[in-house]
Simulated scan of single mutants.
Amino acid sequence: MGGLDEVGRDDAVRTAEPAGAAHDRHWAGGLRSALLCPALLLGLLLLVDRGIGDLTWWRAGVWTALAVLLFLVLFPARVTAGPGWLASRGLLHGRLVRTDRLRSVRWSDGISQRVVLRDALGGRVDVDARVLAANPHLWHRLSEDARTARELGFLVSGEAALRRLSERIDREAAADVFKVSGLE
């Protein structure tokens, strides 16, 4: 995806994942959970309504709508990265950022800690920090491209956010090593 411009940005997100691209290894598990939780909730609600004798088509429709809404909220974004780009594909839309032309990196605190990446072409992607921490290939790709953006003079803000993210990933990796080796 070497020469992406603003016009080709959406097409690049829609295309199949190129060979050699890093992707979120845990996405399939997140999708299973996003399907399982609403299905269990729907089954439980229908079972309870049936048990007390209040199950009607109208109530079943409301419970089904609630389960669909929960699925939409829980659906995980699929994060993929290759040389010079990072893409996040949700249920309804995809976004792409040129990581070799990063303009800023911002850490967004809140319930879900997110990393907000913006490029010189106006692209913007929000990535859950846990996805980068759980996928070393994604983090490595982003880190290398951020270094390139810094060397080329594109990266004007975000050094502290990248350092904070790097420290978090190193801390979690060290904890995993201690846990696996029995030294925790």
Score class of each variant (00 low, 15 high):
103 R>P: 06
72 L>I: 11
63 W>K: 01
83 P>L: 11
54 D>K: 05
97 V>W: 00
85 W>F: 15
89 R>N: 05
66 L>H: 05
59 R>I: 09
62 V>M: 14
99 T>G: 10
96 L>H: 06
77 A>F: 10
96 L>F: 07
59 R>C: 03
107 W>D: 10
92 L>R: 08
63 W>H: 15
99 T>E: 01
92 L>K: 00
82 G>N: 04
71 F>D: 12
86 L>Q: 02
72 L>T: 12
58 W>C: 07
81 A>Y: 08
99 T>S: 12
64 T>Y: 03
80 T>N: 02
66 L>S: 13
98 R>E: 05
66 L>Y: 01
54 D>V: 12
60 A>S: 13
64 T>Q: 04
60 A>D: 05
79 V>G: 04
72 L>C: 15
63 W>A: 13
87 A>P: 00
91 L>V: 12
88 S>F: 01
98 R>D: 01
58 W>L: 15
63 W>Q: 09
77 A>Y: 11
70 L>H: 07
87 A>K: 01
52 I>P: 02
92 L>I: 04
102 L>V: 05
52 I>A: 04
95 R>H: 03
67 A>F: 10
66 L>A: 15
52 I>R: 10
58 W>E: 12
99 T>I: 10
98 R>S: 07
86 L>I: 07
68 V>M: 10
61 G>S: 12
72 L>F: 13
92 L>F: 14
79 V>K: 04
90 G>A: 13
76 P>W: 05
65 A>G: 15
67 A>G: 12
59 R>G: 08
94 G>E: 00
99 T>L: 08
65 A>V: 14
73 V>M: 14
102 L>A: 12
107 W>K: 03
79 V>E: 02
71 F>E: 13
104 S>P: 05
87 A>G: 04
90 G>F: 02
69 L>N: 08
61 G>I: 09
66 L>I: 14
91 L>M: 13
83 P>G: 14
83 P>M: 07
63 W>C: 08
55 L>F: 06
69 L>S: 13
99 T>F: 05
103 R>L: 13
94 G>C: 08
64 T>G: 14
106 R>N: 01
53 G>N: 06
88 S>V: 08
62 V>Y: 07
65 A>M: 12
84 G>I: 05
55 L>I: 08
106 R>A: 10
94 G>N: 02
63 W>R: 07
84 G>K: 03
89 R>K: 09
60 A>Q: 04
68 V>K: 02
93 H>W: 03
78 R>T: 00
64 T>S: 15
89 R>P: 00
60 A>N: 08
80 T>S: 05
77 A>M: 05
67 A>P: 11
57 W>Q: 03
75 F>K: 01
102 L>S: 02
80 T>Q: 06
70 L>Q: 11
55 L>G: 01
95 R>L: 02
65 A>N: 12
61 G>E: 09
62 V>Q: 10
95 R>I: 00
102 L>N: 04
67 A>C: 13
81 A>F: 07
68 V>W: 11
65 A>K: 08
72 L>E: 11
74 L>W: 05
102 L>T: 02
80 T>I: 13
106 R>I: 04
96 L>I: 09
69 L>Y: 11
92 L>M: 08
74 L>A: 14
60 A>G: 10
93 H>L: 10
64 T>N: 06
106 R>F: 07
72 L>D: 03
85 W>Q: 07
80 T>R: 09
61 G>F: 07
